[in-house]
Amino acid sequence: MKRFVMGLGALAFAALLIGALLEPLPVSVDLRAAVTNNMASSGVEHPVTAVLLNFRGYDTLLEIAVLLLALIVILAVGIDTASDQPRTVNPILQTLARVAAPLVIVVAVYLLWAGAFRPGGAFQAGAVLAAAAVLLHLTGLLPSWQVPTRTLRWGLTAGFLIFLAVAAGLLSQGALLHYPPAQAGMLILLIEAGLTISLGLILAGLFLLLSREPGDDA
């Protein structure tokens, strides 16, 4: 009975939502013109990267903070100590992973560089790096993390700290994250490089911390 009522409710909700979507907007809020007009001063040529790191850099700053927070909470929650038999790993898979990992890193660097003028950027590059770490972990080449070491902690926070430092340095200009147009390209590349490393490590950490093996429970 509950299922039926809920299903009917969801259906009615979807129907109403679609009805609302199909109505033409009376006054459409269009930010496309604002983005196009300011592309010249953004320091990059790809509009999505310009929005992410220049026009709405504030969101990206908070996003990397949220990711860091999620990782800290996962560390704080601790883990279940399931009895985890060591996996038997196919040597062919290991060899393939060894070949693939450097290529994946090259792809990540390319994506980071391409973000300035075509689809790509720090997020995709970080995700690709994290995928490489997960691949290496699943083939038994990279052990899961127990407690982050000091170097790892710096790597995890580098993106956030660089971003914050740039934001603080630019505060003297009067506004948060208002880059001077001449240096915008360099600053964005610097922030993106930090973000790529941190995002890769954080996203990999989400996996590697969750699949910690028992024994040395942190």
């Binding site: 930010l31 496309r32 983005v35 509009p47 999505v48 310009a50 929005v51 992410l52 026009f55 709405r56 969101d59 990206t60 996003e63 949220v66 990711l67 999620a70 990782l71 996962i74 997020f123 995700a127 995002l199 954080i202 996203l203 989400l206 996996f207 969750l210």
Partner: peptide, 19 residues
């Protein structure tokens, strides 16, 4: 580009929430 950038941020936050 504006909603595209927002959704890109959203996807990354969603995976953190899932983890």
């Amino acid at each position: 580009p504006v909603p595209q950038a927002m959704v890109l941020t959203g996807i990354v936050v969603a995976v953190a929430a899932t983890a």
